[in-house]
């Protein structure tokens, strides 16, 4: 059965505290951090971007399992922050893991669910027999306008899944999507920062789609929330996924291991896949994982996943790459001035 044959995540070292961002804008940082359920967010180093994050995540996945790069027939990278407007991120990832030239590649954009859209495409190609394996990446150096609510959470990071048929560490039992035209968040061509509909991003956007896709999945599979060991929901902040889980009947114990956002921030296209990686870091054979992503615009992809015995076999070495916890623990806190420099907010002469 088609499934995840390996996975890897990458989070840059640098962090800024939400309180520090609030200090600059004269806001109450303690209140904002508590309200969002986010206390720190990751930011890139000066020489990191979505391409370098995607490559590091893909290489972590390759390190955990002996995959012949020639078997990788497709590379897809979902992101809102591809460094080039025209020239794919995915080709650099393919080249850097040695999968070129006999492969197809493309970049995806669907706000925060572009990574899981890449997973679905990869599943289709693998299931149809068009390719042996495919790499699906969700990564971002998320943008948020200085002083805007998004700036408190927009973070950097990503994860890669290698999708294949042979001995998956986790079988993907089913995937389904719930999609409508909902203008809750967008970024126009050539604009550096996205705009959003404030409270509109909640009820008719995030919750409608996350709950819609999740209910479809539970109905299709004939399952109930208690049938799953873990659940991962798109995590733009700590509050939304917790509420969505509660509305669906999932417990805090089920979602906590995959709730990376608290000390990472919202990695946009990487968010739900980093959450899934955190769960795979601790999952045991037989564990069942429920995952629903969300991308503004809007849509949600839901996944029903069962971890197999292969995760503990000689075919797979979980310790060959850092866990999400390891990546979160290796951090350097910076102030707003350094953050502004790292995020390219300091204008220099060319």
């Amino acid at each position: 059965m088609v499934g995840i044959i390996s996975y890897g995540a990458y989070i840059p070292r640098y962090r800024i505290k939400i309180e520090e961002i609030a200090r600059v804008w004269g806001a109450n940082g303690t209140e904002i951090a508590r309200g969002l359920g986010v206390f720190e967010k990751a930011l890139p180093d000066m020489d990191e971007d979505t391409i370098t994050i995607s490559v590091e995540a893909a290489r972590a996945a390759m390190a955990r399992r002996k995959v012949d790069p020639a078997d990788i027939g497709a590379v897809y990278v979902g992101s809102e922050s591809h460094p080039y407007a025209v020239k794919p991120t995915a080709v650099t990832v393919g080249e850097a893991i040695g999968a070129t030239p006999v492969m197809t590649a493309a970049d995806y954009e669907f706000a925060c669910k572009a990574g899981t859209a890449a997973v679905q495409t990869s599943m289709g190609l693998v299931k149809s027999g068009m390719v042996n394996c495919a790499v699906a990446v969700g990564a971002d150096v998320a943008q948020g306008e200085p002083g805007d609510a998004l700036e408190y959470t927009a973070a950097a990071g990503g994860a890669a899944l290698i999708i294949g048929n042979d001995d998956p560490i986790a079988e993907i039992n089913h995937t389904c999507s719930f999609t409508t035209d909902t203008p809750d968040f967008w970024r126009r061509e050539n604009k550096p920062y996205p705009r959003h509909g404030g409270r509109f991003t909640g009820e008719p956007a995030y919750f409608k789609h996350v709950i819609g896709a999740s209910k479809m999945m539970l109905e299709k599979m004939g399952t109930k929330p208690s049938d799953y060991t873990y659940a991962v929901f798109h995590q733009p902040n700590g509050k939304f996924p917790t509420q969505a889980a509660s509305m669906l009947g999932f417990s805090m114990e089920q979602i906590k291991p995959g709730l990376a956002v608290t000390y990472l921030g919202n990695t946009y296209s990487g968010a739900s896949m980093v959450g899934l990686s955190a769960v795979l870091d601790i999952a045991k054979p037989g564990d069942r994982i429920f995952m629903t992503s969300y991308g503004s615009g809007s849509g949600s992809d839901s996944f029903d996943i069962t971890v197999t015995d292969v995760i503990n076999s000689d075919l797979f070495n979980r310790d060959a790459a850092p866990t999400v916890s390891d990546l979160l623990a290796d951090k350097k806190i910076v102030d707003y001035a350094v953050y502004a420099k790292h995020k390219g907010k300091v204008v220099m002469m060319e």
């Binding site: 990191e48 971007d49 391409i51 370098t52 490559v55 080039y84 060319e350």
Partner: peptide, 20 residues
């Protein structure tokens, strides 16, 4: 080794990547 940006040809030019 890590994969990083080595440089770029201004804001509209090519971006060069490689090993650090």
């Amino acid at each position: 080794r890590v994969f990083r940006k080595l440089g770029e040809e201004g804001s509209s030019g090519a971006i060069f990547y490689g090993t650090k």
